[in-house]
């Protein structure tokens, strides 16, 4: 078991290294550079090409890419993502609060989604093939089929403009108190949940059905355990295991959803920071955020693997083979 876990951990490190290379290559091909956005049209109207080249040289934008990559990577390993190009501000300072804010929103979403998805999945799974299943499945598919930005916009119009329960745009500071953000997180959270609960509930439904049909449930039934007890004590816990990996991937889905939703609502998180960093060509910020996102997904995946290895003896041998 330990060998399997070590193997998975080493693989995760390898994957993160590959992600680092990919992110660096992808940001290298971005046209223009930080200076291009930093200079306003007014600046450009009076500067000559030579002036611009000189500034570019002063900022070290003409250093070859491989050198920059290894400088960046050696720092990133110890959590130092370097400084912004034009103003030399540590990246940590820039992304620290947005990271916390996004994690908070992500946590809220996960905390609501899990039980909701569980309830939906189990309901649909229990009455599979029946009317309830059809209604639940249909509804979740429709929810999943409407674009995030449409759901967000409609929620704003209904619950902020027509019925002024929530702020239409979030104007909280990056450094806002967690409680202040919590108060305005509901609409963005619901937007992501509507779009993503379908995935998870369908997985849980499948896991539920699989467990319901398994031998041990059959044995329990034959030995006269009441149906209610079978579902609550045996099927529900067991149906989670086959979906653990997918749940980890679901986190990646939530991250994508957050980017769009943060933009629609103006939530001060990493998504907004990311869109902005891509816009202003702050390559180091993009790298740091992409890398952190990948770390999160990889770690979730690893934890899911650990849990599966620990919980499910059948998988142990399979995972160590992988």
């Amino acid at each position: 078991m330990l060998r399997a876990m070590i193997r998975r951990t080493l693989l995760s490190v390898l994957i993160l290294f590959l992600v680092a290379i990919f992110v660096f290559l992808a940001t290298e091909v971005l046209p223009g550079d930080a200076l291009d956005v930093y200079l306003s049209e007014d600046d450009v109207a009076v500067m000559t090409e030579e002036d611009i080249e000189e500034m570019r040289h002063d900022l070290g934008l003409d250093i070859p890419a491989p050198i920059r990559f290894f400088t960046w990577l050696s720092g990133a390993v110890v959590g130092d993502f370097g400084v912004t190009i034009v103003d030399q501000i540590p990246i940590g300072n820039i992304i620290f609060h947005p990271l916390l804010n996004s994690l908070q929103l992500g946590a809220i979403i996960t905390l609501i989604t899990m039980p909701v998805a569980f309830a939906i999945g189990a309901t649909a799974g229990y009455w599979r093939g029946q009317r309830t299943d059809a209604v639940v499945s249909t509804t979740t598919i429709i929810g999943y089929s409407i674009p995030d930005f449409v759901i967000g916009t409609v929620l704003i119009i209904i619950f902020a403009v027509w019925i002024p329960l929530f702020p239409a745009v979030i104007t909280a500071y990056n450094k806002a108190h967690p409680m202040e953000l919590l108060a305005v997180s509901l609409l963005p959270a619901i937007t992501v949940i509507i779009g993503h609960v379908a995935h998870l509930s369908r997985l849980l439904r499948a896991g539920f059905i699989e467990t319901m049909n398994s031998d041990f449930v059959e044995r329990a039934r034959l030995s006269g355990v009441p149906e209610r007890r079978i579902v609550w004590r045996h099927v529900l816990p067991a149906s989670v295991i086959p979906t653990l990996n997918a749940m980890a991937l679901y986190m990646a889905g939530v991250l994508s959803g957050l980017i769009v939703v943060e933009k629609v609502f103006g939530y001060p998180g990493l998504g907004i920071e990311l869109i902005e960093a891509v816009d202003t060509r702050e390559v180091h910020v993009v790298q740091a955020i992409a890398f952190l996102g990948a770390v999160l997904v990889v770690v979730m995946n690893l934890l899911a693997d650990f849990a599966i290895i620990a919980l499910d003896p059948r998988v142990r041998s399979h995972v160590s083979e992988r």
Partner: peptide
Amino acid sequence: IMRIVDTKLSIPGILFVALFVVGFG
């Protein structure tokens, strides 16, 4: 092949697409 697959799956989808689109037009 599977490590390449895992690498891609670890990068949030919209970010992956956005980086490419911004890079290549």
